[in-house]
Design a binder for these strands. Structure first.
Lengths: 335, 335
DNA sequence: GCACTCCGGTAGTACGTATAACTCCCGCGA
DNA sequence: TCGCGGGAGTTATACGTACTACCGGAGTGC
């Protein structure tokens, strides 16, 4: 009775009494002026009746396009990247693209370049800055590449989409300065990456000439690392910083724990700021003053750029995505 | 000079002085007893020299397999599902499968069934329980389906992989009972789903005959909803519950905020427990006593099951994944 | 009335691979 | 010497689609 095999365009053609080519034209959507309205509807009806779905593998083989792009991020368990994915996936879906994630080591993938065994061929790649090492041995045959949060000058990317983290850093710094802070510690990411370099530069620039004193300490990307780094800087000899400016919300939460452990009240004795505005930031007490990074928007813009590159090879560099300071309860004037 | 076009197996064959079929055999790995060692190495050398990569679209078309599976989860921005993905992706990669995510509405996908426009065909599907509504109009032509956290009796799944949430709930309940709590409120998920039904039943069963009093209030899956629900139950007339048992860490964090707002100390005046053990759980103060759900392990087992179904059609139902109670600072004996 | 255009549709082919069926040849037992 | 099994490669084909090139016929200008 019910054929196990899925119907092909040829089956639809037989059902509708036309040729396979006509079915392809109609289903491909480009039949205007080629096929009459009457035949077109007949084809569509036949397709519906049979439950026809085009075989994507065959289409891909024929067209050389897979309608699939890859997103490379360090770890999806980091909510920032999950949001990035969300935005990117939405735009991709709107343009009929599927998104496959790079199986990064942090997410359990193989350490080596997995493109050899990639199950799907790719039309293009959207990569976040953190994955620079991954891109080093990236060998996919020169497909279009769009980078996120990376140095526009230094890459083989068709174009680059960046968040305006420099402005974000400037806003935090000015916020702390306005509150009266003059001894500031920077809990910086212990990772080589363009965004973090930009942040450090922006912070230094914002503090320049204000008489504020800046100390920098680096930490890995975990809460515990943040706590340790914060304890180190808070216990260091000399006058204690009155504000702790962190490169991530996660680090800031670690710093919060360190402060509590040392008996410091936040924000009365110590102001702490984050970066990202994850769910985490408004979960803790006090809620974090932080820089909101519109990760979804970044993902959307990145994918939009990639799709447009894929469509007409016109690499247009979009403007930086604006970020905004969100003032909450973890900052106050120094004692 | 450098051909823009990627080399095909035929190019490799010409280079190595053999037929295309031989190249296919060698690259496919199934040449033992068919091709001599000498020729095989020659083929591999030629392939390396030309930088040959098999065209996946052609392979898919020929074999009818795509080596791609879909993972359906409600929202990747929920860390639980991100972890689930991580585990699933690792196993998939080990077996040469790629994972494409269902573009769920929460992640920005189209509300309707996207399989019509899916860019990649699928060999199978791994779906989390929450996505029951999605599966309703799931029309992919009867590909193998493995479910996560759903009713084993009631589904068209080849098999089902579940976390032992009933045991988790029992452990929480016994923990609270052992501490002396007798008035307990359950902040339950306001979503129809098998796991939550199981949790509620397990809780009721654990409290049965202990003289403990149970009140249930439902909340949507956000921190704010948790806060509101907790305020409602804490302000209700009659004697206030001494423990708040939440179906999610996120709800528990909301409850924490509610307690703080009402001037209740946690855990002195009110014990709160979560479920999931997300990063969030150990970020807040006090850190949450919660049930650790090994999401990665669940993803691994689910994908393992799917892969084995795909390989030999042998639907083996794995044992429930054990969960464990993590006692932290948010629970204590009642005042 | 004839050539010419344009509309509506079809036949045929190629995309690159996997694999069934086949050929060739060498060694060996009868 | 002949037949035969089987090792080592090859030939040929099909997967389902998109799209180029073609073709019949109706309308049109002169």
């Amino acid at each position: 009775m019910a054929d196990k095999a899925r119907p092909t365009s040829r089956d639809v053609a037989r059902e509708a009494g036309v040729s396979q080519a006509t079915v392809s034209l109609v289903c491909g959507g480009k039949w205007h002026g080629r096929v009459s309205e009457r035949i077109a509807t007949a084809v569509r009806e036949a397709a519906d009746a049979l439950g026809y779905r085009p075989n994507l593998a065959a289409r891909n083989l024929r067209t050389g396009r897979t309608k699939t792009v890859m997103l490379i991020v360090p770890a999806l368990t980091n909510q920032y990247y999950a949001r990035l994915y969300t935005g990117a996936a939405r735009v991709a879906a709107q343009h009929g693209f599927g998104v496959v994630l790079y199986p990064s080591p942090a997410d359990g993938g193989p350490a080596r370049n997995p493109f050899g065994s990639a199950p799907a061929s790719l039309d293009g790649v959207l990569a976040s800055s953190m994955a620079a090492d991954v891109l080093a041995d990236f060998d996919d045959g020169g497909r279009p590449l769009v980078m996120l949060d990376s140095d526009p000058a230094n890459s083989r990317a068709a174009t680059t989409v960046n968040l305006d983290v420099a402005d974000g850093m400037r806003q935090v710094a000015e916020h702390l300065l306005a509150l009266g802070h003059r001894r500031i510690a920077h809990l910086a990411a212990g990772v080589e990456s363009w965004t973090f370099a930009v942040r450090s530069r922006a912070l230094a620039a914002a503090l320049e000439g204000t008489g504020a004193e800046l100390r920098t300490v680096r930490a890995a990307l975990t809460m515990d690392a943040g706590r340790h780094a914060a304890e180190t800087v808070l216990r260091a000899p000399g006058r204690r910083p009155t504000a702790l400016l962190c490169d991530f919300d996660v680090l800031a939460v670690g710093a919060l724990k360190a402060a509590r452990r040392l008996g410091l009240r936040v924000p009365a004795d110590l102001s702490i700021t984050g970066f990202d505005d994850l769910t985490l930031a408004s979960a803790v007490e006090p809620e974090l003053t932080t820089v909101r990074l519109p990760a979804e928007e970044a993902g959307r813009r990145g994918m939009t750029a990639l799709v447009s590159v894929l469509a007409d090879e016109r690499p247009v560099r979009p403007a930086d995505v604006p970020v905004s300071l969100v003032v909450r309860g973890s900052t106050a004037p120094p004692a």
